[in-house]
């Protein structure tokens, strides 16, 4: 339910503004980072579970969560290392699968 509503917000942005999909991607991740930074997003995750973590805002909040805990552990340097560390699983998977996909797949025309 919550995930669906986040998607509706995205859809309205696509249709009503001239933002490209790449910019919307950025917007959602950034929004997640900000909300995550203030601890608001965690409440949403507690409420909606994967409905909040699966959308890109969840990815953003994960980044900020990583930063905060890393800063607490290892000081200021954590601001630079923490984000990627927390999201490492997702990013590495995407890159890994990207390479695999480019090995096995060939671009194909859209049918419509």
């Amino acid at each position: 339910m919550c995930g669906g509503i986040i998607c509706i917000i995205g859809q309205i942005l696509i249709d009503k503004t001239k933002l490209t999909s790449a910019k919307i991607l950025v917007l959602f991740v950034t929004l997640g980072v900000i909300l995550g930074g203030f601890g608001i997003y965690q409440k949403l995750i507690d409420f909606a579970g994967c409905g909040a973590t699966v959308p890109l805002t969840g990815f953003g909040s994960l980044l900020s969560k990583g930063v905060i805990s890393e800063v607490q552990e290892s000081g200021l340097i954590g601001a630079f290392t923490g984000g990627i560390k927390a999201a490492a699983g997702g990013i590495a998977a995407a890159i890994f699968f990207g390479y695999i996909a480019s090995l096995v797949s060939k671009p194909k025309i859209k049918k419509q």
Binding site: Q11, S21, I24, L56
Partner: peptide, 29 residues
């Protein structure tokens, strides 16, 4: 095809992030 139907429905979840990385990987092979 899913993206055309669903728009932000498949784009906003993490699936869209993966798609945005994998699709240029295939294209620029």
């Amino acid at each position: 095809k899913i993206g055309k139907f669903a728009g932000a429905g498949s784009f906003v979840p993490i699936t869209g992030f993966a798609n945005s990385i994998v699709s240029p990987a295939i294209e620029y092979k």
